[in-house]
Amino acid sequence: MECLGVSSAQHLQALSTLLSTQQDDDGDEDCKNVTACAGLGPGHIGPPPKRDKEVSPVYEKKNSKDIWSEEEVAEGSQYDDFADPRPQPEYEVLLKQSVGTEDMFLGLNRKDPSSMCCEAMLVKIKLPDTEATDVILDVKEKFLDLRTPKYKLGLHLPHPTHSHGGKAHFFSVREELEVTLLIKRPMDVVNMQ
């Protein structure tokens, strides 16, 4: 191991010579002073940046208060209609899993209460003063779109879902729609074994 005396100053001087962008004969004298060499940083490596480069219009913000660009907007935003005065109904998203006695008491299938072991998602939507025939429901992989004469709901789902196997049931006594969707995960085969 080297002592941090003269040899480290020589190493700094050699490094300064390698990193300097100007070929000055006086540079060796400046680097004898360690504080002058300490002003160099990672930005001094390589050729200086070109200043005359134009910014691409894709990355240029149109308004300084913009938070994101149109390309970054999530799927399902095409259903958003800000001019539509209909209110959003109350809803609740619950995760479900099929559990038997072997899971509850013996733990044979290695299921736990975490969301990773859930197979389905239940969306409960309260629709007062609505008939089952008035409901228009469209479910995509990551978006649920519900329209009635009195309500509209555009819900971004927390997990991607399968396009098949989902079901919806309207309870007229409770005035509530329950939509059950199967969750799609890339590792379902491995996790559910």
Rank of each mutant, 00 (worst) to 15 (best):
K62G: 15
E71C: 08
G76L: 01
E54W: 03
G107M: 04
V99H: 04
K65S: 13
K96I: 04
I67L: 09
G39D: 03
N109D: 14
L95F: 02
S77H: 08
F82C: 04
V55I: 07
V99P: 15
S77T: 10
R51G: 05
L94D: 14
P113F: 08
K111M: 14
E60T: 11
D84W: 13
D80N: 05
C37D: 13
K50A: 12
L106C: 15
I67T: 08
Y79D: 07
A38G: 09
G43W: 06
C37A: 13
V93Y: 01
K111F: 15
E102Q: 14
E72P: 01
K65A: 14
L108P: 15
S64Y: 02
P85W: 05
I67P: 06
L108N: 13
S77P: 07
K61Y: 10
H44K: 12
K61Q: 10
T101Y: 05
P57G: 03
Y91R: 01
W68Y: 08
D52H: 06
E54T: 01
P87S: 01
L40D: 10
E60Y: 06
P57M: 01
Y91T: 04
L40S: 13
Q97A: 13
G100A: 07
W68G: 04
P47K: 09
L106N: 07
P89N: 04
S64W: 00
P89F: 00
D52E: 14
A83S: 08
S69F: 11
S98E: 10
D112M: 06
T101N: 14
P57H: 02
V55F: 11
H44S: 10
L108I: 10
K62M: 13
P57V: 02
S64T: 02
E92I: 02
K65F: 06
V73G: 13
D52M: 04
S69W: 08
D84C: 05
P87I: 01
D52T: 12
P47W: 14
P87A: 02
A83K: 10
G39C: 11
V55A: 00
D81H: 00
G41C: 09
V73D: 10
K65H: 08
K62A: 15
Q78L: 07
D52S: 09
K62W: 15
S69N: 15
I45G: 14
P47D: 13
D80A: 00
E102Y: 10
P113R: 11
N63G: 01
L94R: 15
H44Y: 15
P57L: 10
V58G: 05
F105W: 14
S98N: 08
N109H: 13
K61N: 01
S64G: 06
P49I: 03
E90T: 00
H44C: 10
G107K: 08
E71P: 07
P48Y: 04
V93Q: 00
S64R: 07
E71N: 08
C117Y: 00
L95C: 01
G39P: 15
A74G: 12
S69Y: 06
K61L: 13
D66R: 03
G43N: 09
M116E: 13
E102V: 02
E90D: 00
R110Y: 11
S77W: 06
K50N: 11
